[in-house]
């Protein structure tokens, strides 16, 4: 049982082994597939998902969920691209402002009005997507274009194989991982996820923490949207829409519990990498799209089940 105990205390090790296993499978299917260049493309595609899932991790730690992350990412990228001619800085700031604004409204509804996170963020997702469609029809006169430096951020490489987006993702990851462990705000997130009522009785202003948390999630989603627009080098109205479910999957595979305040962003990072590698394995298998979808769902389910089994005490 000591092995199991070790895994229970270090779930990140199990996840890393799983990731290595998947990379091994990839190498076995197509020998010679795993190269520095492969590493580059994998990180390129994992970075937007990882940053998007960062916000999702923060809200899921407190027992919430944000169903508007993908819509916010799309809106931020689109608004950034359609304002590119006014100057790069203004465009980026406008994009980020969208994320902060939506996050703030989400936070207000959930923290102050005590709305259920699931339905509140779902409603805001509808507002954002609908609003963006209207905006694209009435306010956008020129074709949206992604600024050059955003393209570099999302798709560029330094030192031969280090993606530029990693240079953004890594600091964000360090700030979140360390912040969750070492700062009062980070610990409050765990405390609220564990028992919000007890926090309130202990004098924590729970609503303020929630408000800031959802706003942060909105900001991170907007950043992810900009990176994704750079990676793909276009910004259309459906840019990040397929990313919603993978963010939740990445957080869950990464070991963050929806029910109690446990987990960390480091798990989510591996979760995002696992999903990205899984995607490339399925692509290499050359399976038809429906089979790929079924396998994708089944493997996520298997991983989550195995994980729950390994980590449960009984």
């Amino acid at each position: 049982m000591t092995v199991r105990r070790y895994f229970q205390e270090h779930p990140i090790v199990v996840l890393s082994l799983l990731l290595l296993l998947l990379v091994g499978v990839l190498e076995a299917i197509r020998p010679g597939a795993v190269t520095p260049n492969w590493f580059r493309t994998t990180v390129l595609f994992a970075a937007p998902l990882g940053i998007l899932a960062a916000g999702q991790t923060l809200v899921m730690l407190t027992g919430g969920i944000d169903l508007s992350v993908a819509n916010v990412a799309t809106a931020a990228a689109y608004i950034m691209a359609s304002n590119a001619r006014h100057g790069d800085l203004q465009a980026v700031l406008l994009g980020l402002a969208v994320g902060v604004a939506v996050g703030l409204v989400n936070g207000l509804g959930i923290a102050v009005f005590q709305a259920q996170p699931l339905i509140m963020t779902l409603g805001m997702a509808l507002v954002v997507t609908g609003g963006l469609t209207v905006y694209s029809q009435f306010a956008v006169t020129s074709v949206p274009s992604v600024p050059g430096f955003i393209h570099t951020l999302g798709a560029g490489t330094v030192l031969g194989f280090v993606p530029v987006s990693l240079l953004l993702w890594a600091p964000i990851a360090v700030i979140i991982v360390v912040g969750l462990r070492r700062t009062g705000f980070g610990r409050l997130l765990y405390a609220i996820g564990d028992n919000a009522a007890a926090c309130r009785l202990a004098g924590v202003r729970v609503w303020q923490v929630r408000l800031v948390n959802y706003t942060l999630c909105g900001l991170l989603s907007a950043i992810a949207g900009l990176v994704l627009a750079g990676t793909i080098n276009t910004a259309d109205l459906g840019l990040a829409n397929t990313f919603l479910l993978p963010t939740v999957a990445a957080v869950v595979i990464g070991g963050t519990s929806i029910f109690s305040g446990s987990g960390n962003y480091s798990g989510t990072i591996i979760g995002a990498m696992i999903l990205t590698v899984l995607n490339s394995v399925l692509t290499l298998l050359d399976a038809p799209e429906p089979i790929k979808q079924i396998l994708y769902g089944a493997i996520i389910l298997l991983l989550a089940t195995a994980y729950t089994r390994v980590l449960s005490d009984t």
Partner: peptide, 17 residues
């Protein structure tokens, strides 16, 4: 014993396929 939201999320991919 996985949370229902996660199971049905994964199953939604399966049924969609």
């Amino acid at each position: 014993r996985v949370p229902d939201i996660v199971v049905t999320l994964a199953m939604s991919f399966v049924w969609g396929g």
